[in-house]
Design a binder for these strands. Structure first.
Length: 893
RNA sequence: GGGUUCUUAGCUCAGUUGGCUAGAGCGCAGCAUUCACAUUGCUGAGGUCACAGGUUCGAGCCCUGUAGGACCCACCA
C-alpha cells in the first residue's frame, strides 16, 4: 500500500476495471492542495494565459460547458507540461437578462412582482439565488478536471470589475463614443426592457397581408394596428407610376378614424417592385420608417405603449391589445370601403427576444448607445472608429481566428454593425453611472462620472437622480480579459487613477493580452467582438492573440438539445459518475473539428471509457512486472521490441506535439489512442511477456501517461500516484517526454516480426491450419524472437533450419515458411491468386506513373523516389508470390 | 436578398500546406476464452470521397457550376 499524498489513499491491489468515481474527487483535491494550477507572475517562464468564458450563474453546467472546459483544460495542461507559466483564470457571469428573467418568473410563481417587493429586496433575493448557482457550478468545473487558478476566481459583479465597468462607461462618454438619444430599440413588452439587435431572433410565421386604399394610393401592411398616425406616403423617386407627385405635396385622405392630412415623401429606401411601390410609414415602430423620418425630418408618433396596448391616438381602439384590435380595425376599414384585399398566405418574420421569447415591438426610446462609427479612438497612431479598429485587428493579424472561415463571418457582421444599445430596464446588473436633475427652467442636466454628484444643499428640491437602468450584460463581459487581471486592492482605492491601476497591476502586465480565447462560435458577435471593441479602447491592447471557436453539441438525432425536449438534454453530471470524466472529455473531442457542430453519441463515451480502462490495465501489468522499482533510470533498450516501441514513442510524441501546437485536438487524440492501444498494448506489452526486466516498460508507461494527461487527467494522475517510483511528484506538472535514442535497425526488425505474425495469423485462419511450425533460414534476428512469434501467432514453434519446403510467407523479404500438408494447396493457390492480382494492379499503376515524363520532371524528387521504391517493393512481393505459386502448382498437380 | 458550411463505409464523423494502397469509433461476419484488460484479443467484409466540368504530372482537398441539407446576417412596408 502506498498512500497518502494529499490524503489520497490508493491500493496496490488495483481493481481489474478502472472505477473513476473512486478516485476523481481525491485526485482533484490533490491538485488543488499541491498548488500546481496557480500561475506565478514572478517566474521567468514563458507565459500562456487564457480567460475562461464565465458561465452564466443560472443553475448548472451543460455539455457545452463541459466541452469548453475540456478544450481549455487540454491547452492549459499541455502548456504547463511544456514548462510554461500557465494562467487559466476562472469566473462566472451575473448574466443580467437571463437571471433577471428567472427571478421574475420565480416571483410571478409566488404571486408577486419585482415592483411589489422593491429594488433592494429584489437584488437581495437575486444575490441569494446566484450565490447558490455559483457554488454548484464551481463544483462542476472541478468535476470536469478544470486546471484553473482558483486563487484568481472572478465574478462580473466584483468590486474591481464594477470599477472597470464604470471607468469604461465614463471614458467612452467623455470620448463621445457613448451617447444618450432617442432611437428605435427592440422593446420586449414581457420583460419590459429593450434588448440589443443580436438578442433578437426572427421566426417565420404565416400571416395576413392587407392592402388598403389610402387616398389615390393602395398601401400594403401586415400590421394595420400601427397605421393610425400614418401621414406620410413614401415612394421611390424614380418610380414613373407616381411621377405626377412631388416630394412635399400634401393631400387629404380618408383613413381609419377620419380624414388625414398626408404628405408625399420620395425616398430610395422604397422598393418599387414590392406591392404597389407605395407605403405609409410608422416611424415610432419600425426601424426603416424611423430612418426615413430622420432623413426628412418628419414627425414621429407613438401608437403602442410599452405594455403592448394601443394609445389614445387609436381612438375607439385605445387600450386594446394588438391581437384584439387588429381584426376590429380591419373590419372598420372594410366598412369604410378602404379594404382592397387580404392575402392569407403572407409569410413574414416575427421578431422575438431570444431570452424571454416575447414578441419584440420596436419603440423609440431615450437610451444609451455605443457609437461605432465616429472616429474617436487612437489606434496605431490614427483616429479610428470602433468599427474600424474591430476590422483592423483581424486584418493586421493582431488576432487570429480559428478556424479561419470565421474571419469572413466576422467582417460581414461588422459591416452591418449599428450602434450598440447598452441600457436595459432591468435591475440586476451594473447600474448606469449617469445622474439627472431638472433645472428651474425645465432643462435636464446630465452628469456622468465615477462617483455620484453632490447634491446642492441649498436647493433641497433639486436633487440628482441616478438613471434607473442597468447595462447590457455584455458590456461588462466585454472587459473580461483585463478586468479580471487588475489588482483588486489597487482598484478599490478610487484615489489611484485608473491608468495607474493598470500600470501597477502585476497580473495585467504579465498576462495581458491573453494568449488564447476559446469559446463557441455562437457568441462570436455577442462577446468576442465586444471584447475587441472595449479592450482596444480601454487598454490600447487586443484582448487575446488567438481565438479558437468550437461548435455546438447537438442531441444524438442531430437536432438541438432543447428544453422543450427534456429527453434530448444530456447532463454531464449524469455521465461522469457512470463513465468517468476522462471518458466524457475524450468523447467530446474525438473526431471533432473546430467550428463544426457535433452530435452527442453514447458510443463515443463507451469507446473512451474502454480506452481509460486500457491505460489502467497497461499500468496494472507494468506495476506487476516492475515490482518495487523505486527509481527509474534512463532506459537502455536491448530487444527489438524495445527499440521499436521507443522509436514509436518518439514519433508519437512529435506528432501529438505538432497537432496540439496547431490546436488540432482531435488528431492529437487520435494519434495517442492508436499508439497506446495498437502499438503499446497490442504489440509491445505482448512482446514484453517474453522478456525479463522492465525498465523500458516502466519508462514507456511513464511517457505514455504524460502524453495522455492533457486528455485524461484523472486516470493518468491516479496511476501516477500509484507508481512505486514517482515519489511525491504530481503528474500534472511533469515535463513533456523528451526523445531517447532507439536503434532504427532493431526497430525495423520488429516491424518484420509484426508482418510475420500478422501473415501467419491470417494464413492459419484462412487455411484452417492447426498449430503449424514456422521454419526459417538465415534470419539472425528471428532467433531471439522465436518464442514471441510462436505465442503471438499461435504456432507450435519457430525454428531455424538449413533448408526445407512449405508455405512461404510473402509479406516479408526474409525466407520463412509454415509446415503444411498438400491438402491446403488449392485454397492457398486461390489466396495467392487474389494477392497477385492486387499487386499486379498496383504495380501497373505505379509504373504508369513513372512512365509519365511530366510526373517525373514536375513532381518533387522525394515523391518520385518514393514511387520508385514502391515499384521495387511491389516487384519483390510479386516475385515471391509467383515463386510460391510455382511451388504449389507442382504440389497440386 | 447576402454569406458560411456540409454531402467520404450500414450509422456518426476525421482527413493539417494537393503526393504512399482514403482513416476512426460504433455496428456487422467469423474465430479465440480466464496468461494486464470481455470495458478483451485475432482475422475480415464494407467506400466510383453528392453530381458535372476545369486547373494540375497528380484532386477527397483548389476553381466553376448543379442538386440536396444545416446555419448565420439583413429584412419589404
Amino acid at each position: 500500500m502506498k498512500s497518502n499524498r494529499g490524503g489520497t489513499i490508493v491500493s496496490m491491489q488495483l481493481s481489474k476495471v478502472y472505477e473513476p468515481s473512486e478516485y476523481e474527487s481525491d485526485i482533484y483535491a490533490l491538485w488543488e492542495q499541491s498548488g500546481v494550477f496557480a500561475a506565478d507572475p514572478e517566474s521567468h517562464k514563458e507565459r500562456f494565459s487564457i480567460s475562461m468564458p464565465p458561465p452564466n450563474e443560472t443553475g448548472t453546467l451543460s455539455l457545452g460547458h463541459a466541452l469548453f472546459l475540456t478544450l481549455q483544460d487540454i491547452m492549459a495542461r499541455y502548456q504547463r507540461q511544456q514548462g510554461k507559466d500557465v494562467l487559466w483564470l476562472p469566473g462566472t457571469d451575473h448574466a443580467a437578462l437571463a437571471v433577471n428573467a428567472i427571478m421574475e418568473k420565480k416571483l410571478s410563481n409566488e404571486g408577486t412582482t419585482k415592483h411589489h417587493i422593491g429594488r433592494d429586496a429584489f437584488l437581495e433575493r437575486t444575490r441569494e439565488f446566484v450565490g447558490e448557482s455559483r457554488g454548484t457550478m464551481l463544483g462542476q468545473m472541478r468535476a470536469m478536471g478544470a486546471s484553473c487558478d482558483w486563487s484568481r476566481l472572478r465574478y462580473t459583479l466584483d468590486e474591481a470589475l464594477n470599477r472597470c465597468v464604470t471607468e469604461t462607461f465614463v471614458k467612452m462618454y467623455e470620448a463621445g463614443v457613448i451617447y444618450r438619444g432617442h432611437r428605435i430599440v427592440n422593446w420586449d413588452p414581457n420583460l419590459e426592457t429593450n434588448v440589443s439587435d443580436d438578442e433578437v431572433s426572427y421566426e417565420e410565421e404565416q400571416g395576413k397581408f392587407y392592402t388598403f386604399r389610402y387616398g389615390p394610393f393602395e398601401i400594403g401592411t401586415a400590421r394595420p394596428e400601427t397605421k393610425f398616425g400614418d401621414k406620410y406616403v413614401v415612394m421611390h423617386p424614380d418610380d414613373e407610376r407616381y411621377s405626377q407627385y412631388t416630394h412635399g405635396d400634401t393631400l387629404s385622405v380618408e383613413w381609419i378614424n377620419g380624414p388625414i392630412h398626408a404628405t408625399i415623401i420620395k425616398d430610395a429606401a422604397v422598393d418599387p417592385s414590392f406591392g404597389t411601390g407605395v407605403m405609409t410609414i410608422t416611424p415610432w415602430h419600425s426601424l426603416v420608417d424611423f430612418d426615413i423620418a430622420e432623413r426628412h425630418g418628419l414627425d414621429k408618433e407613438q401608437i403602442i405603449d410599452f405594455h403592448g396596448k394601443l394609445l389614445p391616438i387609436a381612438g375607439e381602439f385605445a387600450g386594446m391589445e394588438i391581437a384584439e384590435a387588429r381584426p376590429k380595425i380591419v373590419a372598420k376599414l372594410k366598412e369604410k370601403g378602404l379594404l382592397v384585399s387580404i392575402d392569407d398566405n403572407y409569410v413574414h418574420n416575427v421578431a422575438t427576444n431570444e431570452r424571454g421569447k416575447g414578441v419584440i415591438e420596436p419603440q423609440v426610446r431615450l437610451q444609451w448607445f455605443v457609437d461605432v462609427n465616429t472616429p474617436a479612438v487612437e489606434w496605431k497612431g490614427k483616429q479610428r472608429s470602433l468599427k474600424e479598429v474591430m476590422q483592423l485587428v483581424i486584418r493586421d493579424g493582431d488576432i487570429e481566428i480559428m478556424p479561419k472561415r470565421f474571419e469572413k463571418i466576422y467582417f460581414h457582421w461588422i459591416d452591418n454593425l449599428r450602434d450598440w444599445c447598452i441600457s436595459r430596464q432591468i435591475w440586476w446588473g451594473h447600474r448606469i453611472p449617469a445622474w439627472y436633475r431638472t433645472d428651474t427652467d425645465g432643462t435636464v442636466e446630465t452628469f456622468v462620472g465615477l462617483t455620484p454628484p453632490a447634491d446642492d444643499e441649498s436647493q433641497g428640491w433639486n436633487q440628482w437622480e441616478q438613471d434607473p437602468d442597468t447595462l447590457d450584460t455584455w458590456f461588462s463581459s466585454a472587459l473580461w480579459t483585463w478586468s479580471t487581471l487588475i489588482d483588486q486592492e489597487l482598484a478599490a482605492d478610487m484615489n489611484i487613477p485608473f491608468e495607474d491601476v493598470l500600470k501597477q497591476s502585476k497580473d495585467f502586465q504579465t498576462y495581458h493580452p491573453t494568449s488564447m480565447m476559446e469559446t463557441g462560435w455562437d457568441i462570436l458577435f455577442f462577446w468576442v467582438a465586444r471584447m475587441i471593441l472595449s479592450t482596444t479602447f480601454m487598454t490600447g491592447e487586443v484582448p487575446f492573440q488567438k481565438v479558437y471557436l468550437h461548435g455546438l453539441i447537438r442531441a444524438e438525432d442531430g437536432k438541438k438539445m432543447s428544453k422543450s425536449r427534456p429527453e434530448s438534454i444530456i447532463d454531464p453530471l449524469d455521465v461522469i459518475p457512470k463513465y468517468g470524466t476522462d471518458a466524457l472529455r475524450m468523447a467530446l473531442i474525438m473526431g471533432v473539428s473546430p467550428g463544426n457542430d457535433q452530435n452527442w453519441g453514447w458510443g463515443k463515451i463507451e469507446a473512451n471509457r474502454n480506452f481509460c480502462n486500457k491505460i489502467w490495465n497497461i499500468s496494472r501489468y507494468t506495476i506487476d512486472r516492475v515490482g518495487e522499482l523505486t527509481e527509474l533510470t534512463k532506459p537502455e533498450p536491448t530487444t527489438d521490441a524495445e527499440h521499436w516501441v521507443l522509436s514509436n514513442l518518439q514519433r508519437t510524441t512529435e506528432v501529438i506535439s505538432a497537432h496540439l501546437d496547431a490546436y488540432r485536438f482531435s488528431e492529437a487524440y487520435d494519434t495517442l489512442y492508436h499508439f497506446v492501444w495498437d502499438e503499446v498494448a497490442d504489440w509491445y506489452i505482448e512482446a514484453s511477456k517474453n522478456e525479463k526486466g522492465g525498465t523500458v516498460l516502466a519508462y514507456v508507461l511513464e511517457q505514455l501517461l504524460k502524453l495522455a494527461h492533457p486528455f485524461a487527467p484523472f486516470v493518468t494522475e491516479t496511476i501516477w500516484q500509484v507508481l512505486p517510483w514517482t515519489g511525491t511528484t504530481v503528474l500534472a506538472v511533469q515535463p513533456w517526454p523528451i526523445p531517447v535514442h532507439a536503434d532504427k535497425k532493431a526497430a525495423a526488425h520488429f516491424e518484420e516480426i509484426r508482418s510475420i505474425v500478422t501473415e501467419s495469423r491470417a494464413l492459419i485462419r484462412d487455411l484452417g491450419l492447426h498449430k503449424p511450425h514456422l521454419y526459417y533460414t538465415n534470419v539472425p534476428f528471428l532467433g531471439g524472437n522465436a518464442e514471441l512469434i510462436a505465442r503471438m501467432s499461435g504456432l507450435a514453434g519457430v525454428q531455424e533450419v538449413s533448408d526445407g519446403a512449405g508455405l512461404h510467407l510473402v509479406t516479408t523479404s526474409y525466407r520463412c515458411w509454415l509446415d503444411v500438408d498438400a491438402s491446403i494447396a488449392e485454397a492457398h493457390l486461390e489466396r495467392l491468386a487474389v494477392q497477385t492480382n492486387e499487386q499486379q494492379q498496383r504495380l501497373a499503376s505505379l509504373q504508369a506513373r513513372l512512365r509519365n515524363e511530366n510526373y517525373v520532371n514536375h513532381a518533387p524528387k522525394e515523391v518520385v523516389n518514393e514511387t520508385k521504391a514502391q515499384v521495387a517493393e511491389t516487384e519483390a512481393t510479386l516475385a515471391r508470390l509467383q515463386a510460391e505459386q510455382h511451388r504449389f502448382a507442382e504440389i497440386g498437380s
